[in-house]
């Protein structure tokens, strides 16, 4: 396991697929007679193998972006392209990890992970190998026969990550995957996620509330604001992985992003009122 981490933390040229392009994406919800702009003019291109973090206040639509990219919701305007092909529905080339692990409580860890191959034609021996490989990958060896209620929150989330990795997705979407965990488990799993990212070499997008987490993992941090949900700023993080949380640049970026978020939050209420008033004309 030890030398699975790439020595210089550079992505190899092997994975040139997994480019996600979001072009003038709009999404509205209808609230009785009003239209609420959940996402307004989102433009974002994510390179193959890149790790992009998205931070923003509640209600800025950051999780909605992931739901659209994974294909659980196809009610939007604009284009979402993966390697140039538009996304129409779910596909095993896009994986997702939710904040709640969403393991089936009646299945063991093994069965839950194997469920990701439910629509695959692989011979069962091969499926077995893939499942056990992924159990190893998230360090859950020995817990294959445990039921979700027997796992800690961190272990359940690791099982959910393994399930998402089984199909070797080109892009892995992480919707606040560590949001429900305690601080220590979070730190540990952040390092685990980084190790998996380096090993797995897929594109990853993570939505989080935690600015430090966003900076620790992301090549770029997308800062969003709410009402309507839009991108405020994209912050490149020019630091080598694995990152030193105590470096001056890390701190400066963290302060900047936090300032952005606080600024957004204080005006959010006023904007919400304004946006509702404007949109009501459309109804």
């Amino acid at each position: 396991m030890g030398n699975l981490i790439h020595p210089d933390f550079k992505r190899s040229a092997k994975s040139l697929s997994g480019e996600l392009s979001i072009q003038s994406l709009h999404k509205q919800y209808r609230l009785e007679r009003n239209y609420l702009n959940v996402l307004e003019n989102i433009n974002l291109t994510i390179l193959p193998g890149e790790f992009v973090s998205i931070v923003g206040p509640s209600g800025c639509g950051k999780s909605t972006i992931l739901r659209l990219v994974v294909g659980l919701d196809s009610d939007f305007q604009g284009r979402i392209l993966l390697d140039g092909k538009p996304i129409t529905s779910t596909s095993t080339d896009r994986g997702i990890v939710f904040q709640d692990h969403r393991l089936f409580p009646w299945m063991t860890v093994w069965e839950n992970i194997a469920f990701a191959l439910v629509n695959s034609d692989l011979p069962s021996a091969e499926k077995r190998d893939i499942v056990s490989l992924n159990i190893k990958r998230v360090n859950l060896t020995g817990f294959a026969n445990a039921y979700p209620h027997q796992l800690s929150g961190g272990m359940a989330q690791r099982a959910a990550i393994a399930r998402a990795l089984v199909n070797e997705p080109k892009i892995l979407l992480l919707d606040e995957p560590l949001g429900a965990l305690d601080a220590l488990t979070r730190l540990y799993l952040q390092a685990e996620l980084q190790r998996i990212w380096i090993q797995h070499r897929s594109t990853m997008i993570m939505v989080t509330h935690d600015v430090e987490e966003a900076l620790f993992l992301g090549d770029r941090v997308v800062v969003m604001q709410a009402n309507p949900g839009r991108i405020k700023r994209v912050v490149p993080v020019p630091l080598e992985h694995p990152r030193d949380r105590s470096s001056p640049l890390f701190h400066r970026l963290k302060d900047e992003i936090l300032a952005d978020l606080i600024d957004t939050d204080s005006t959010a209420e006023a904007k919400r009122a304004k946006s509702l008033a404007l949109r009501s004309d459309l109804g």
Partner: peptide
């Protein structure tokens, strides 16, 4: 949520009934 997970993994109808 269960149906969403099934959809993410493109679970066909019969396994959906049997396993979920």
């Amino acid at each position: 949520n269960y149906f969403e997970v099934a959809k993410v993994y493109q679970c066909p109808l019969w396994p959906l009934i049997k396993q979920v």
